[in-house]
Design a protein around this nucleic acid. Structure first.
Lengths: 422, 422
DNA sequence: ACAGTTTCCCGTAAATGC
DNA sequence: TGCATTTACGGGAAACTG
């Protein structure tokens, strides 16, 4: 009796945070004959869900609205609900939501829409549902929720299987890798290439990856921690996606970040390159970190590799990554600090790649000396140098040739004459 | 008929933000004869306030509680209201709150408490009020609110003059300066000395300050902008208080920040000191900034002063101030960068003063090179050097004597052998 | 257009529940 | 006790509103 001839649509992704407003829109898919009364639509959250198994939510604000002709081109009725907000139902008796084994981001919910009208004495009920929704209470649960949405979309066409995560099917790596790449292309402006995906596949599946289309379980993808690490595969990958979105967007879009390379591969790639050749990769040991590794030749002619401690969002928000690459210096034992980064793998001169991305804002506050932060590492060849106390008196300054830093520090200071008069 | 024999007390300062929980406690000041029923207290916000003149708020949550014997030592009844929350009353008709000339932080509100009981057939009503309260909707209004609370407390003993800011009296500088010093001693661990207060007085009153106890108007203190600046005196002072609280606490407590010195005075103080003598002062041109100025002698023997662009909370949260002082470098025209800061005014060797405050955390992530940020400025003696393009190819490295930076970079890197194996 | 004010909501920290 | 989840709220930014 209830007709599925309405379509629901949510503006934002299918993850809703309690207490945060969201918007949804329903349209009638059929053209009705003129109706002389207003067609009311009511939206309900978690309708018909038996209490106990999962958390239940309700819509705090007004949930009934009148349909209106919005788009005159097709003459269809539609209505947009704005400023909807979810709150959890609390049960007086002991029955608490989420008693299953599912985590909150595996619980699926849905919004329902109902309308009823009478035409020529015939009562017609209309009802439709949104796709499954994940409800979270804190943005820290967003990665988990997003994993669920991806898995659901990848592995089922059912419009409303709310118990999907009771027994979620595995995904073929070939399908999954496509979805992952798509995440990067849609959120970070560039997808993942074969080599990057191969590294991810190996991380997820071990050596199997190369020899066939293995299956990845939901658990392996987003629930179990990576061996020896305190986070799952997806948590790790998503932390990188976030880092790119916030701090590495242009560098990533330009394809300057190899990113997903094993350390063995990295070594193999850099081994035969010019000294000073470097590449950028994401940390595998920490969430949301990026590091660079460069190759150099020791005095004895051996190939040497160095990597810097990964930069995380905190570091990158005080110093943009391109500027770090431009200004990075290493001191080894009382030798002039030098920037060891010369060529982006395979052989692009550093400034050719990153030049456009450097930002050297000149000082706005004129009577003052501009001050910038320079990233710097110390490399000690003899490991057992006396540990240096931070209270040791400063050594006398040794003047000498040193124009490199001065060359790097390029901003206009044209009125240096009067350092007083704020 | 209503008896003022209850006392109200708020835990937190007298500024309440809408939507944020606060706590208040009321006690009965007299010992009652045994009562056989529970004594209920009701708390009301903005009771008896005629609508229209100012905004009005109400308590969202439960506002009635039963008194209880809490402290057996005196046997008095008291009750604590927790999780109270304020929300603005909205009027349907045009009457909008705050139609006066007062800003929201000048509006004074109050909490009332009422209780009623019958003893021996005699009905007794009790009522009391809190001190005036300021209601804000965003933490950005907190400085303004705090200014009001200070001014009220300084200039009146009335327990509840809600129209105080209709015509606020001026303060004597001698009283006000005491209050300001007290702000610093209670929130930042050290008050203001005579010289610092003299500078503030002059800022507020011009040269008058030195020759008598002039009066400061409320407007001058916190409403009018400082001449040529986009902020008032109190906004400026409070921004410094916040900076100290969050980033300079120990340095301030140890009295290493002169802070409030005019640039003229600063020059006069440093003029005759050893080259490399520096002092720390707060920016007068920008909110919440700190800078250092050092003295040096030019080749021709003239005294020269340099100041660095002020550091704000953003810079200081990526690099603690003591570390900035330790690591700060200046390059002048291709000469080795050197730290120009040698003696904290008047003559304390830098490391003697700041040594204990340096923090050189060793790297936690071992196979990597630790990377720290070094604050650095460039000083060009010839102003018309060709502007340096950030895309210019890197100059060849000039090795040379340079152990100073390496000396400064002190953390333990004891396993540098295998830079691979994350 | 604009300034004063409020609302929105991320992201961290703390509290809570199991 | 520890982990999962929710709540609290500062702080920046957008939205609102005369």
């Amino acid at each position: 009796e209830k007709q599925p001839c309405m379509a629901a649509h949510l503006d934002k992704p299918l993850i809703i945070k309690t207490g945060v407003q969201f918007t949804t829109k329903v349209s009638l898919l059929v053209k009705l004959p003129e109706v002389d009364y207003q067609l009311k639509v009511k939206t309900t959250f978690d309708k018909d869900l038996p209490p106990g198994r999962v958390r239940q939510f309700f819509i705090l604000t007004n949930n009934t609205k009148v349909m209106d002709i919005e788009d005159y081109s097709n003459g269809c009725l539609s209505v947009e609900f704005r400023h909807l907000q979810l709150k959890e139902k609390k049960y007086i008796n002991g029955t608490k939501g989420n008693e299953s084994l599912l985590s909150v981001t595996e619980e699926l919910h849905s919004l329902s829409f109902e309308a009823c009208f009478t035409v020529q004495g015939l009562a017609i009920d209309l009802e439709t549902f949104s796709l499954p929704l994940v409800v979270i209470s804190n943005v820290s649960q967003l990665p988990g929720g997003w994993a669920s949405v991806m898995w659901y979309n990848l592995l089922t066409d059912e419009p409303r299987n709310l118990v999907f995560f009771g027994n979620p099917p595995p995904a073929n790596w070939s399908q999954l890798s496509e979805v992952l790449s798509w995440q990067f292309s849609s959120f970070a402006g560039r997808g993942l290439n074969k080599d990057q995906l191969a590294m991810l596949g190996e991380k997820l599946l071990g050596q199997h990856a190369s020899c066939g289309d293995y299956q990845v379980s939901w658990s392996k993808f987003s629930k179990e921690n990576i061996l020896g690490k305190p986070f799952s595969f997806w948590m790790w990958l998503d932390s990188i996606l976030e880092l790119i979105k916030k701090h590495l967007q242009p560098v990533w879009s330009e394809n300057y970040i190899m990113g997903f390379v094993s350390k063995e591969m990295e070594r193999a790639l850099l081994k035969d390159k010019e000294p000073g050749t470097f590449l950028l990769r994401f940390s595998e040991s920490h969430l949301g970190g990026i590091t660079f590794t460069w190759v150099e030749h020791s005095d004895s002619g051996d190939v040497k590799f160095n990597s810097v401690e990964p930069y995380t969002k905190n570091a990158l928000s005080s110093l943009p990554f391109a500027d770090i690459i431009r200004d990075y210096k290493v001191i080894s034992d009382g030798v002039v600090p030098e920037n060891p980064l010369k060529f982006l793998y395979p052989d692009i001169p550093k400034d050719e790649a990153f030049g456009r991305l450097y930002n050297s804002q000149p000082s706005k506050v004129h009577p003052y000396l501009r001050c910038i932060f320079i990233p710097i590492s110390e490399l000690r060849s003899n490991a057992n140098t006396t540990p240096c106390s931070s209270q040791s008196p400063e050594p006398p300054m040794t003047p000498g040739e040193f124009d490199m830093l001065s060359e790097q520090l390029c901003f206009d200071i044209d009125t240096m004459s009067s350092p007083y008069s704020e």
